[in-house]
Computed example of a mutant assay.
Amino acid sequence: MPDSYQDPSGNTEAFRAFAHPSTESPAESPAESPAAVKPSTNLPLIVGGIVAALAVIALITWLAL
């Protein structure tokens, strides 16, 4: 390994520069502000459950014939 290589985990400043490559400071980041946080929705889970239930009902009906 060359001597000029600096491990990002070696100090806090290097790690932060590695982990947050954007030029914005973490306090200015819109993704971390409370107003930018969107509430999670269960819609995909509900739709997936309905599709799975219909598939099971269709399978049972097909096997019963």
Rank of each mutant, 00 (worst) to 15 (best):
G10K: 01
P26T: 02
P2R: 09
A58Q: 04
G49D: 02
A52S: 11
A36Q: 01
S40Q: 07
V47A: 15
F18E: 01
F18V: 01
P2K: 11
A27T: 06
S9Y: 10
A35G: 02
F18K: 02
L54R: 03
E32K: 03
T23G: 13
I50A: 15
L63Q: 10
S4V: 09
V56L: 15
N11K: 03
N42R: 11
P21C: 07
V47D: 03
A36D: 04
E24A: 15
A53P: 01
L63H: 03
L54V: 12
S40C: 05
E24V: 10
R16M: 15
L65H: 11
Q6K: 14
S22M: 03
I57E: 06
L65R: 15
G49N: 07
P30Y: 01
F18Q: 02
L59N: 04
V56A: 15
A31V: 11
A52D: 01
G49I: 05
E24M: 10
E32A: 07
T41V: 09
T12L: 15
A14Q: 08
G49P: 00
H20Y: 15
S4A: 11
A36H: 02
G49V: 03
L65W: 06
E28F: 00
Q6G: 01
N42G: 14
A58V: 09
A31D: 06
S9W: 08
E32V: 05
T23L: 12
A64N: 10
V56P: 01
V56K: 02
I57D: 04
A64S: 14
M1K: 04
P44I: 11
A31E: 08
K38T: 12
L43A: 15
P21D: 03
D3M: 08
G10M: 02
L43Q: 11
P39D: 14
R16I: 07
W62G: 02
A64D: 05
P34A: 13
A27G: 02
G48V: 05
E13H: 08
L63I: 06
L65C: 04
S25C: 04
V47C: 05
D7S: 11
V37G: 02
E24K: 14
S25H: 11
S22G: 10
V47L: 15
L65G: 11
V37M: 12
S9I: 01
T12I: 12
N42V: 12
N11E: 04
V56W: 02
V37I: 14
V37S: 09
Y5Q: 05
S22L: 03
T41E: 08
H20N: 13
N42A: 15
A14T: 13
A55T: 11
P8S: 08
E32T: 14
M1R: 08
N42I: 10
S4P: 00
S22H: 00
L45R: 13
P44T: 09
G10A: 14
F18H: 14
E32M: 06
A36M: 00
P44M: 13
L59C: 14
E13T: 12
F18D: 04
S33K: 15
I60Y: 07
I57R: 06
A53Y: 04
A58D: 05
T23H: 06
A14L: 14
V37N: 08
P21V: 04
S9A: 09
A27M: 06
P30N: 01
P2C: 07
N11C: 11
A64M: 10
K38P: 00
T23E: 12
W62V: 09
Y5V: 08
